[in-house]
Amino acid sequence: MIASLIIGIIFLVAGLGLRYWINRRKFYRRGPMGAEGFSSYESSVIIKLLEKFGKWVAYALIIFGLLSLWGYSREKKDKEKQNVEIQKPK
């Protein structure tokens, strides 16, 4: 039960951190006119491709983290419900 909470937090933070890092690199690559500066066409294509792939990985990490946190909350509610039913006198 606690493992899903820890995994959810780790994956959520990792996904958000990856998105932040990619967007920050993209921001600092821009020049004064707002255009991105690359040393060559090949590096432009490769970097943009890696950033797209990285964003999809970040989205997957965020979704998996949120699902893990949701699963943890469901487990916690079910456990509390079972404890309440056990403690009720019949």
Rank of each mutant, 00 (worst) to 15 (best):
S43I: 03
L67F: 06
I6G: 06
R24K: 08
A60Q: 01
G37C: 08
G65F: 11
L66S: 09
R24E: 14
L5I: 08
I10A: 15
S4M: 06
K52T: 03
L66M: 01
Q87A: 14
P89F: 09
W56L: 14
G54M: 00
P32K: 10
S43V: 06
S4Q: 04
S73K: 08
L16Y: 07
E75L: 11
L66K: 03
I9K: 06
K26A: 15
I46Y: 10
S39L: 06
E80W: 11
L69Q: 04
V13D: 04
A60D: 12
K88H: 13
E42F: 07
F38I: 00
G31N: 13
D78M: 02
G54Q: 02
A3Y: 15
G54K: 01
E42C: 03
I86W: 12
F53A: 15
I62F: 05
F11W: 14
R29H: 01
G65H: 12
S40Y: 02
L49D: 06
Y41G: 11
W70D: 12
Q87S: 14
Y59G: 01
L16E: 10
P89I: 07
I22D: 03
Y20V: 02
L49C: 03
I47W: 04
G65D: 08
E51L: 04
Y41M: 10
I2Q: 04
